[in-house]
Design a protein around this nucleic acid. Structure first.
Lengths: 359, 359
DNA sequence: GGACTCCATGTTAGCGTTAACATCACTTCT
DNA sequence: AGAAGTGATGTTAACGCTAACATGGAGTCC
């Protein structure tokens, strides 16, 4: 009663007085079974409360209908939203999801994680880890026959990938500031190793360069609000005049807004702030944050669909699925204040004079 | 070259000129193997790049070393942090994690999800779904022999569980306001179905009742910042005087702060706000949020450890692991302003008079 | 020096399922 | 009426691994 032995096909077959194979046919729906036999089998299944064993099915069919999702730092907004999207898509397609956190970005930790997933015989893997082109190719070399959709690699890498067009989003953000008339723009990046990050970083710089500008400061955070706060204080302490900040994610932007507020700087009158992600909080911050919307759940779903496609076709063509983010303009951006600009210009002139004098 | 057949124990055995069983002994570390034999086998393993098949191992040993995590709405703060904690603990113990989202709270969706996990032969399940006592017992009845640690059930339910002491945390929050001298407290709950929520709700009410108070308003949100914002506007529109709000999570509190700010109400001078969770943003909101800290990653790790314990012992004793949250006092709470209180009292008297007159 | 133990290894029989082939009773066609 | 399907079932051999028992040789004991 407490722990009766597991019910197998054989048990059902015995009760229904048919062969195992017939029961298998009823369960899987493959092959012809007479209506009355099917009814008898189904009755037996219900009576015994039979549950198929996916391990055995996987072993026999050489296909597990499970996929792995390998990602870094699940506690951040992006990976957790991604997980939600992937899980839903997988479940709807009849797949299970094995989630595995990669200890660090880069080849070595990734290899370790993929080895674990391959042992579990997943049919394919979604890999949300920052890898440069060389690493990606090495991963493919080390795991031949393991269908893998990359989610954080440089656009154009010749492998199956589902990516956000980070460069496009970053350009939107930068151009928005430029159109408003900003010329003294600081940028606050995420951790330097992130591939997405360097794409954003370059797009920001490129957009500024189009207007013959370079960022007045370049800071780095770790995606956390606290790091955004700290970076902003460093920026202010540096004394370099600026009228806008491009921030690599909304969570850091929370810290940025806070730091500016603390120092009596009004957003957007004194400083414009643009975030990235459009988290649910962003619309309700003080002030509501102008940001770049990224739809992670949808990206996850598309990535899974892409993997499914890879599993189906014999020839895994290296199609890239690109999702395009959009700019959401809210109240944290405005044209630079003329007054503040002139004050800052004067200040800078003074500094330059002092520097010339001192040097 | 492209898709060579999988390497099995038999292949390794043939190359090393020993029996399969000897290779198995080397791989698993069970049983004695002579040093020189072991070396030969290891060389063969390395040469062939052999990877054990966990499916086959699971089938043979009747143990998969994988656990399921069933949860609702992975996109929220709590479940995603929990996932991170569980995954890490599981990985460190050599277990894989199958994540499965339950469509809705309640028995039926839970049963569906657990059936799927059982098919995959997980050794046990961590269940982060709101269930009342009756449902929990029914789940146990329907899945005998499936070790399960419940994470969102009423404290005291006689089943293995890893819980946060929600009532304690809620009491801390309420008593903090009472000590400050607040008497007109509104409460903003999460969705009504949530078990944790009703625990918080009751603890809030009980703490107020100790001081012969009842909440002046009772609102409900869906955990999102937008719902916190909307609820606050409803509260303000209702015209009931209040000097403090107890909010069921920090994300909603973001919306609450925003709504109050929009209406020109100062936090904490005019209204005190207490959140719940202590998200990374909370310390950097305007103003920094007084809140109840919940350490989800640690809870997840403890829950997994509890499950592991259940798997080891023959007699699954229904121990409950309780994690105690703590109050973090920041700048969103202060004593009620006397001025505002008297204005509100006058207003209320007037309302009462009007009501009496009208009725 | 024979019984006893211990170690290193091999052999056999599953674990629960499916694929591939085999069987046998009916139809249906010409 | 005989050939040729076709529909419903059964039989057998994997899938990759481990548990349990079997074997045989080397050392130990009195």
């Amino acid at each position: 009663m407490t722990d009766r032995k597991t019910i197998t096909l054989a048990d059902v077959a015995a009760l229904a007085d048919v062969s195992q194979q017939t029961v298998s046919r009823v369960v899987t729906g493959n092959g012809q079974v007479a209506a009355h036999t099917r009814a008898r089998v189904n009755a037996a299944i219900a009576h015994l409360n039979y549950v198929p064993n996916r391990l055995a099915i996987g072993l026999a069919r050489q296909r597990t209908y499970s996929v792995g999702f390998a990602t870094t730092d699940l506690s951040l907004h992006a990976p957790s939203q991604l997980t939600a999207g992937i899980e839903q898509a997988a479940r709807e397609a009849g797949y299970s999801l094995l989630v595995s956190i990669v200890a660090a970005n880069g080849l070595s930790a990734t290899t370790h994680t993929l080895r674990g997933l391959r042992e579990r015989q997943v049919d394919g893997v979604l890999l949300n880890v920052s890898l440069d082109t060389a690493d990606v190719l090495e991963v493919q070399r080390r795991f031949p026959g393991l269908p893998c959709v990359f989610m954080d690699v440089p656009i154009g890498t010749p492998v199956p990938a589902a990516l956000l067009d980070q460069a496009h989003g970053a350009r939107l953000a930068a151009e928005h500031l430029l159109e408003l008339g900003h010329t003294r723009v600081a940028i606050l990046d995420g951790p330097r190793h992130a591939v997405v990050e360097s794409a954003r970083h370059h797009a920001w710089r490129d957009a500024l360069a189009t207007h013959d500008l370079t960022p007045v400061a370049h800071l780095e955070g770790d995606w956390s609000p606290a790091s955004g706060y700290a970076a902003t204080l460093r920026l202010l302490a540096g004394g370099v005049p600026f009228t806008a900040i491009l921030v690599a994610n909304d969570q850091m932007a929370v810290g940025v807004l806070r730091a500016l507020w603390e120092r009596g700087l009004n957003v957007p009158a004194d400083v414009s702030v643009v975030g990235y992600d459009d988290t649910p909080e962003s619309a309700l911050l003080i002030p509501p944050l102008t940001t770049v919307r990224q739809d992670f759940p949808t990206l996850g779903a598309r990535a899974f669909a892409h993997l499914l496609n890879l599993l189906g076709t014999e020839d895994p063509h290296s199609l890239q699925v690109l999702t395009v983010p959009e700019l959401v303009i809210r109240a944290s951006t405005a044209p630079p204040s003329v007054e503040r600009q002139s004050v800052q210009a004067a200040l800078e002139t003074l500094r330059a004079a002092l520097a010339a004098h001192g040097g």
